[in-house]
Simulated scan of single mutants.
Amino acid sequence: MTQQTFSQWTLPTTNGVDSLTFESNIPLSSIQPLGRHEVLVNLKAAALNYRDLMIAKGLTPGQIQPNIIPGSDGSGIVLAVGPSVSDFKAGDKVVTHMCPSLPKDQPASMTDISAGLGQTLPGTFRTHGIFPSTALVRMPSNLSFEQASTLTCSGLTAYNALFGLSSHAVKKGDWILVPGTGGVSIAALQFAVAAGATVVATTSSDVKAGKLKELGAKHIVNYRREKDWGESAKALLPSSYAAGFDLVLDLGGNETLPQSLAAVRPDGLVVCAGVLGKADAEMVPMMSALWRTCVIRGLLLGTRQQFLSMNKFIEEKDVRPVFDDEKVFKLEEAKEAFALLERQGHFSKVVVTM
């Protein structure tokens, strides 16, 4: 018998995690019938992003839809499709795409992300939801729902960072530097290793250093012990790579960019994909690229076409995205999941199951 009710979280106000409100036993009929281009999904897992925390606090760019259902990352099973939907059918396993209004090959801007799932459009922290068909892609066949739920933001950002610029796409034999143990960094580590590259990773935790080694990192640099960790990482390169790394992933913005620039080789690539460092860090001028003679690329998320390419790569290389499986939360425990993310007590991704 088909379930007739569902549960969800909403955000009536933006005063922090405590603003989240849980609602249950909502009639499924209240969100039906389906539009012509819509898909009804029974969500099985969702993953948290730093963006979700900022939305809960009202600190993200752009307007926040009142009573928004939070979350952009999710996976589940299609229950029904609208009459004009040809890409999916009942029973298909799917993953959400944050920016459904974008053309297939168009990169996302901050405006597009603000208009996406979990901020303007209803998100993934619910057991059932109706989504535009363009907000979904087929789930990689080798993944669990929990693994697949990590792909929407962190996975796609990492894939774009490594392979999105064709002239500097990561390949076998390259040396890559990735920072920390957050979702984007861990996905980038896994993708780079799967592509045959050698990865040096940074962390301040000896425990997390062990996990990074298990995932394939060749060397670990402790950025708290090594003030000039960019140079320390570069010193680990073989003599043929003494000039620097082929690609450096930067997620700290102005706080970490000087170290990233110190680590990259001439004509290498520094990918700026986050601003998680100190907000009051001194601004790094663009002329820094001239002194390093490198390429600096900024990006947000990735395109729908890149999402499809990433999923094919995941299947072909049998990549199994890592999340913090020491504590997987139930939907009713979402506030605890947000709290874990806020205190940065997690490894890679925080996942909620329905």
Rank of each mutant, 00 (worst) to 15 (best):
L136V: 13
N142R: 02
I130P: 04
R138W: 05
M139W: 03
F131S: 00
P132W: 07
A148F: 04
S133K: 12
F145T: 05
N142A: 04
R126M: 13
L117F: 14
T124H: 00
L151Y: 02
S133C: 09
S144W: 01
E146R: 05
P132S: 10
E146I: 01
S133E: 14
H128V: 10
L121M: 14
I130D: 06
F125T: 01
E146T: 05
G116E: 11
V137C: 14
D112H: 15
A148M: 02
M110Y: 03
S149A: 15
R138I: 03
I130F: 00
T134I: 04
S133A: 12
A115R: 12
M139C: 09
G123I: 07
T150F: 08
L143P: 04
S144C: 08
T120F: 06
V137H: 11
T120S: 15
S149R: 01
G116T: 12
A135I: 14
D112W: 13
D112G: 12
A135H: 09
S133W: 00
G129N: 07
R138C: 08
L143H: 04
E146Y: 00
A148I: 03
N142V: 00
A148R: 06
D112L: 14
G123R: 07
T111G: 15
P122T: 03
D112T: 13
L143I: 00
F125S: 05
F145S: 06
R138G: 07
F131C: 04
T124G: 00
R126W: 06
S144I: 05
A135F: 10
S133T: 13
M139E: 01
S141H: 10
